[in-house]
């Protein structure tokens, strides 16, 4: 109860700050003009506005990148833990290169340098850049999960005659993935937010659509608030989904 009161107080304070600030700026709020950019209802027919269309692209990019980043991360982590010197070196080089350069530079590099050579679409360039970037971080998360497994799990599996791959597949990975679900979620949330950068190579995602509308209407405050809320909805939903999943798996374990 006290918590809720405190929350409401903070919320009221923040609202007042924004309202006061904008009054001093002399900003003329025109919220009524925003909904048409999200969706329109004509004769009961629902039509998605540019913002919703942008959100759809953002979700597509995020989903594709997530699957690819998960795969890249897993493979990189396995390479780093493998006995092969070559695999360890390549995966380490990839990891350090990606982690120590800005995502924006990687995005430009892929879009302006690689995509003409390999004839990559804009959408695919965006997905590739994001998955390589997030995959590097995901690989460290996976690796941490796998090395945190007790040695006895390996030994028990080996003593039963299981090979390395069977042990990874049936013993180590199922347990490691469960363990790293929370940091993996943070990474997925980062992915959603980082996807905004693809607007710089003119992929028509949520951010790009917003910029476009603002350029025409000058509704900067209203639209950025709306766009932030839309991102927030996606990331909160994602976190909620994962915590549900975590609960279900904990019962199983």
């Amino acid at each position: 109860m006290v918590d809720i009161m405190m929350f409401l107080c903070v919320l009221a304070g923040a609202t007042w700050l924004v309202a006061d600030g904008t009054t001093k700026l002399g900003y003329n709020w025109q919220w009524y003009r925003v909904p048409q950019y999200i969706f329109t209802l004509e004769d009961g027919r629902f039509t998605a506005g540019p913002l919703l269309e942008g959100l759809k692209v953002t979700l597509e990019i995020t989903a594709a990148s997530f699957v690819l980043a998960f795969t890249v991360g897993l493979v990189t982590a396995l390479c780093r833990l493998s006995g092969s010197v070559m695999a360890r070196m390549v995966s380490r080089a990839y990891l350090e290169l990606i982690r120590n350069t800005p995502l924006l530079v990687q995005l430009f590099f892929i879009y302006f340098v690689l995509s003409p050579i390999f004839d990559l679409s804009r959408f695919f360039s965006a997905v590739l850049a994001l998955s390589l970037f997030e995959g590097a971080y995901a690989s460290e998360i996976f690796r941490a999960g796998m090395v945190s497994m007790h040695r006895g799990q390996w030994e028990a599996a080996y003593s039963l005659g299981l090979g390395v791959w069977d042990t990874y597949r049936w013993i180590i990975l199922p347990q490691a993935v469960r363990r790293v679900l929370p940091p993996l979620t943070s990474q997925a949330v980062s992915l959603v937010k980082d996807s905004a950068l693809v607007s710089t190579i003119a992929v028509y995602d949520l951010t790009m659509r917003g910029q476009e509308i603002i350029a025409e209407t000058y509704l900067a405050f209203e639209l950025w608030f709306t766009i932030a809320a839309m991102y927030l909805t996606v990331t909160v939903a994602l976190s909620f989904l994962v915590s549900l999943m975590e609960k279900r798996m904990r019962v199983a374990a």
Binding site: G152, E155, S159, G161, D166, I171, Q175, A253
Partner: peptide, 29 residues
Amino acid sequence: RKEVGMVFQSFNLFPHLTVLDNVNLAQIL
């Protein structure tokens, strides 16, 4: 390893599998 079974001090059961699956796993794989 197929011919030699081992029992550890710390059990080392697979915690994410049921008792039955623990016993089944190597037979199947």
